[in-house]
Nucleic acid binder design. Structure first.
Lengths: 114, 114
DNA sequence: TCCTCCCATTGACAAGTCTCAATATAAGTG
DNA sequence: CACTTATATTGAGACTTGTCAATGGGAGGA
């Protein structure tokens, strides 16, 4: 399940010192690269910003703006969820997605943010 | 030339409002995804952090730690430079790389940083 | 000038990614 | 129990990416 799978990466990225301060290890770089890779696709970036802007969104509201098929949207939400960047909660037939602020803050911090 | 090519993306990403505030347009997302893609590879992340940690580094000092061939290192420095994340300066036989703090700060800002 | 060293480019291949059609699953509705 | 709806999974095709061997180009040294 997507919602629980996200916990995996969240906890295995404790994380590391900012890249601007000391060189990343191989493992740290591999872990962190996965999170950045999740954000490095135009469709996923827009998906992410749509969810963030709405506060919460079901998958069915994303197909239109993103102009992608339903399986493709599902594919992208899974990648973002696996990276710990969004979390899905099932309510009835719908899956509601929201962004995981903590993980986003972690990304900024590793990129030298405060 | 890498050093001047970096200016391209830097100026075409003015950039946009943080993803947490409003949905990105297609063009904004495409531009910004390129910058994130440059950072979404383990070897490039380590390369970037090595350069940052040293303040400055020539390519020849990267092959060892990164355990990649010379053409591969050159390939990665080019991608980071094209994304405006590092800048290379030729001094004699060597190319010295340093990170572009402004572009890194821009990335953090689009990701909701201050 | 010739040789060496550093870096960039080209070409090729394996592996990964994005996309959609088709299908499966799971929850509500009648 | 059918039937519809929302999402997930599978499979396949086109495209992209990471990698290295081979080669090219430019700068300095003998």
């Amino acid at each position: 399940m997507a919602a629980t799978a996200t916990r995996t990466l969240e906890s295995t990225v404790p994380c590391c010192a900012p890249v601007t301060e000391s060189a990343l290890s191989n493992d740290e770089a591999t872990e962190f690269a996965k999170v950045l890779a999740a954000l490095s696709d135009p469709v996923r970036l827009r998906l992410f910003s749509l969810v963030a802007a709405e506060g919460e969104s079901c998958s069915c509201r994303l197909e239109g703006p993103l102009e992608r098929s339903q399986p493709t949207i599902s594919h992208h939400t899974k990648i973002l969820a696996d990276a710990g960047l969004i979390v899905g909660e099932k309510r009835g037939k719908w899956t509601w997605w929201r962004i995981e602020e903590d993980q986003l803050a972690r990304v900024r911090r590793v990129l030298g943010g405060t």
